[in-house]
């Protein structure tokens, strides 16, 4: 399910919105002049650069995406309290591990999102993706059970991402 350019003069609609919002945030204003200038930039830059972009899976479910983002944000806060406790506590109680997690999702963008989520949340850093895009190598700061950790990541982060990208 790749996003086809639907309109000739608006090749990347999401990028256009992102550019407009970024321009307004940069100038910290909602003045009409900046709205017009931002709109011109948001329409012009994608026209010039759309030839460079790889087609990516389309985003179908904005509500689910927003809910996923909020959930990840909440997890980041709780995970950080946990990591802070582990860092300040006795170090010989940490059990670091390197594991390989089999991936079910496909495509570069979903895998990147999953790897970023894994890096930002509970005690895990994604360190490498295998060339065949089937395995994600994860380093965990303190792991009790490998199967449980993989199941948690799959259940909590990979499943919603698969639903969002419907692959």
């Amino acid at each position: 399910m790749l996003a086809k350019p639907r309109f000739r003069w608006l090749p990347m609609p999401y990028h256009s919105i992102l550019l407009l919002v970024t321009w307004l945030l940069l100038n910290n204003t909602l003045a009409p002049g900046h709205l017009v200038l931002g709109t011109i930039l948001a329409l012009g830059i994608p026209l010039l650069t759309s030839g460079l972009s790889h087609p990516q899976p389309a985003l179908h479910k904005p509500v689910k995406t927003a809910r996923y983002a909020l959930m990840v944000l909440g997890d980041i806060v709780t995970a950080n309290v946990e990591v802070a406790r582990q860092v300040m506590g006795p170090l010989d109680q940490l059990h670091p591990a390197l594991i390989a997690m089999p991936l079910d999702i496909e495509g570069d963008l979903p895998i990147t999102l999953l790897a970023s989520t894994v890096s930002l949340t509970p005690g895990t850093v994604s360190s490498e993706v295998s060339q065949c895009r089937k395995f994600l190598y994860i380093h965990a700061l303190s792991m009790t059970d490998e199967a449980e950790l993989i199941a948690t990541i799959k259940e909590r982060y990979e499943k919603p991402l698969m639903e969002i990208f419907s692959c």
Binding site: H95, S130, Q131
Partner: peptide, 14 residues
């Protein structure tokens, strides 16, 4: 744990 994975991971293999 799992230090055996360093070798395949550094070469991007499964």
């Amino acid at each position: 744990r799992g230090q055996a994975l360093v070798e395949p991971a550094s070469q991007q293999m499964a």
